[in-house]
Design a protein around this nucleic acid. Structure first.
Lengths: 175, 175
DNA sequence: ACAAACCAACCGGCTGGTCGGTATCTTAGC
DNA sequence: GCTAAGATACCGACCAGCCGGTTGGTTTGT
C-alpha cells in the first residue's frame, strides 16, 4: 500500500487549481498539497500531462456517475444530463478547473471530452422529437456552467436557481 | 510614429494563442509574431498582464461594436446579442483565445468581462417580459461559443446553423 | 531479499523582466 | 533651414527564478 493513491493526487491537483489558478498548477504545488515530495508524485504520474489526463478522466467519470444516478431515479436523458451539470456546478468545480488547466496546457487533452459530447448529441438526436430544442437546453446549462468556471456568475446568485427550475421544466415538457 | 502600434501587438498575441495555444503565449513569441524584439514589445506593454488586459479589452470592444451594429440595423436587444455571439464564433476567435489565456494566467483579469455580463443581465431583465427565457437563449449561445473555444464543436457542423436559426426564431418570438 | 513507494538534491531550458545602448522622430532656438 | 537636445521607439544581451523531469539513494511493506 501507499500513503497516498492516485485519486488523492488528482484531488490535490484540483485543489491547487481552485486555490491558485490553472497557471500555478505545478508538480511542486501538487506534491506539497498532498504531502508528497515531487519525486514521490512523479512516481505515480510520470509526466504532468498524464496527471492532467487523469484529472479530466476523473471529472468526466464523476459527471457520468451523477447523470446515471439521476437516470436510475427515473429521469429521462435530458433531465439527467441537466441535473448532472447543475450538480457539478454546485459541487466542487473539479471538472471546470481541470478543463481550464488542460486546455491551457495542451488542447489535445480535450479529445475525450469532445468524444463524450458528440456521443451525447447523437443520443439526443435519437431520443427526442425535437433534437434542436433539446440541444439548446443542454447548451444553456453548459453556458451557465462555463460562466461559473470563468467566475462571471456568482454561486449565490438567486437567478441561478430560477434558471435551473425553468430548464428542468422545459425539459419535462419536451419528454 | 512607430513601426507597430498596440493594436497590432494585440492581434499578434491572439495569433500566437490561436497557433500555439494559450500556454505558449510568451512575450518572446508575441515579439517574434509582430517582428519586434522582446525589448521593443516590453516598451509598449510593460508587463505580460497588461498585454492580457489589452487583449480582453479589445475583444470586448469588438463584441460590443458587433452587437451595436446589429441593433442599429433594427434588431432588438436579444437578437443583437445573439448575432454578435455567433459573429464572434465565425469570425476570428479573438475573444475566446484571449479568455483562455487570461484565465489561465490570472482569473482576476476577467473582472471586466464579469461586469459586462452583469450589465447585460440587468438590461435583459428590464427589457423582456420573460427575462429567464431570454437569459436561457443567451446562455445557449454562450454554451455553443464555449464549445467552439474548447474545440468540442466543429466549425463546419451543420447542426450549428440549425441551432442558430432556431435561437434567432425563439428570440423574435419573445420580442 | 525484493519490489514498490518515496525522498532530496540537482539540472537544463524556458520565461518574464532588466539594462545599457542605438536609431529615429520632434521640438526649439537661431 | 539647420542643428542641438530631448524624447520616444526599439534592440539584444543578460539575469534570476521557476518548473518539469532525472537520478541515486532510503524507507516500507511482503
Amino acid at each position: 500500500m501507499s500513503r497516498v493513491d492516485k485519486s488523492a493526487i488528482v484531488r490535490a491537483a484540483e485543489e491547487v487549481v481552485r486555490e491558485k489558478g490553472a497557471r500555478k498548477l505545478t508538480l511542486d504545488a501538487v506534491a506539497a498539497q498532498c504531502g508528497l515530495s515531487k519525486g514521490g508524485l512523479i512516481h505515480h504520474f510520470r509526466t504532468k500531462q498524464s496527471l492532467l489526463k487523469a484529472m479530466l478522466e476523473s471529472a468526466i467519470a464523476r459527471e457520468d456517475a451523477s447523470a446515471e444516478a439521476c437516470a436510475k431515479a427515473g429521469g429521462d436523458l435530458l433531465t439527467s444530463r441537466l441535473s448532472s451539470i447543475f450538480e457539478l456546478m454546485e459541487d466542487d468545480e473539479g471538472l471546470p478547473r481541470s478543463l481550464i488547466a488542460a486546455v491551457a496546457e495542451d488542447p489535445a487533452l480535450l479529445e475525450p471530452v469532445k468524444i463524450k459530447e458528440v456521443e451525447l448529441r447523437s443520443e439526443i438526436s435519437r431520443t427526442y422529437k425535437d433534437p434542436e430544442l433539446a440541444q439548446l437546453l443542454i447548451l444553456a446549462a453548459q453556458g451557465l456552467f462555463f460562466g461559473r468556471v470563468l467566475g462571471v456568475v456568482e454561486p449565490e446568485d438567486p437567478m441561478l436557481d430560477r434558471l435551473r427550475e425553468r430548464l428542468l421544466m422545459l425539459s419535462t415538457d419536451l419528454a
